[in-house]
């Protein structure tokens, strides 16, 4: 059911782990499926993401999107990192099954949450970033099957 890229990033996930004294840490969870993702960012003085690590409790898609998302934001500056949407991650993974699209939102939100944490810690404001919801799927409707 998964593309080869997803399977690769799932079976050999990049950037698993923690960063001690990270510049920013974001943890998000999906109330519906109960999955949890935590992203650690190491951001240098030029606001470039030097390193990025993750820990994920979730399905294959969640692990693979975590892995790909960390790969994509590494080396980028904050503004660029904000452009790493779930769509971008999915594309980089050659797609996800429809029922797994929500998993990729987890990665996007975790990065945003880590950046928010970084901004708060450093008392700065990042253009275009809003406070992460405690649960990214709050209020989301069960997706309607399109018949």
């Amino acid at each position: 059911m998964y593309s080869d890229k997803v399977m690769d990033h799932f079976q050999n996930p990049r950037n698993v782990g923690e960063i001690e004294d990270a510049s920013g840490v974001g943890t998000v969870g999906n109330a519906k499926c109960g999955d949890i993702m935590r992203i650690y960012l190491d951001i240098d003085e030029n606001q470039v993401i030097r390193d990025c690590k993750f820990k994920t409790f979730g399905c294959g898609a969640a692990v693979a999107t975590s892995s790909m998302a960390t790969e994509l934001v590494k080396g980028k500056n904050i503004q660029e990192a904000l452009q790493v949407t779930n769509k971008a991650v999915m594309e980089a993974l050659d797609g996800l099954p429809p029922v797994k699209v929500h998993c990729s939102l987890l990665a996007e939100e975790a990065i945003h949450a880590a950046l928010w944490d970084y901004a708060e810690k450093h008392g700065i404001k990042i253009e275009g970033l809003s406070k992460p919801k405690s649960d990214i799927h709050e209020g989301e409707e069960e997706e309607e099957e399109e018949y």
Binding site: Y2, M7, F10, Q11, K32, C33, G34, D35, F57, G58, C59, G60, A61, A62, V63, C103
Partner: peptide
Amino acid sequence: FIEGESLLIFLDGAGICASSGSACT
């Protein structure tokens, strides 16, 4: 601490067919 679908995929990789009560499956 672990999630069922991930477990199943790794088991499948080892040639083992199993199932899980995980949402994700």
